[in-house]
Nucleic acid binder design. Sequence first.
DNA 1: AATTATGCATTATATTCTTATGTATTAATT
DNA 2: AATTAATACATAAGAATATAATGCATAATT
Lengths: 124, 124
Amino acid sequence: MHNYIMYIFELSMKNTNLYKGSITTIILKLLNEHDKMYGYEITQKVRDITKNELQLTEGALYPALHKLKDQGLLDVEVLYVGNRVRKYYKLTEAGTKETVKKLSELESYIRNMRALVNPKYRDE
Amino acid sequence: MHNYIMYIFELSMKNTNLYKGSITTIILKLLNEHDKMYGYEITQKVRDITKNELQLTEGALYPALHKLKDQGLLDVEVLYVGNRVRKYYKLTEAGTKETVKKLSELESYIRNMRALVNPKYRDE
DNA sequence: AATTATGCATTATATTCTTATGTATTAATT
DNA sequence: AATTAATACATAAGAATATAATGCATAATT
């Protein structure tokens, strides 16, 4: 019965559209903090930090990781744990620079959104 | 020459992906604050408040307004200023409720993103 | 034995936005 | 007076991003 409740719960837990466009920033920052991580680990870390409020789905995560790798922002290292594959991702130098950029874009975004939805955060 | 500089400037001013999914929240909140506004006015208000950092393009704005209207969240009132059409949008009751919801989603989003990119905002 | 968790991935579809284009009126500049 | 910029609406093609569904396989738990 517990699983059934979880199922109903998760059905109602779709992310808001606001997260669109944020995945790259999240991935880069977590890698910046943890040196190297694998995909599944990233999904769990995001679940833990947001207390289940943001579900990073595989359909969003893996294409994002592949794209970052193609852009030269991440390096990959394949590891076998028993017979199971694990792909560790790690920031390149360019990836570290991009992380700084993305984080400052996030700060700008938050500042602008605060000003838009709350008059008291507007200048003059 | 001034126009040339503005042109170059605006070419480099593309919005970050972070704004994806935020337009609805912005429109609803501005209408919640100003009672009624027309499309062009909304674009200008957004430019002013964000000091040109967010450019709300027509291709994004008008479809968004039409969708909100179709969803019953906005009412429209057509006005002629000289020979020029102006369409004033206004929140319906449902629209006001949705605004509250969107604003709390934005607060959750900001809280979660802060926690994700800054360890000191994480609990335990 | 069956289910859940771990771990990767892709594909069809939906949503959202950018860029480009279109039409037309009014104001400002040269 | 003529040109450009600003005002004001709109759509359409394409890009980007994410969801939902599906697939495969191993390891751990009940």
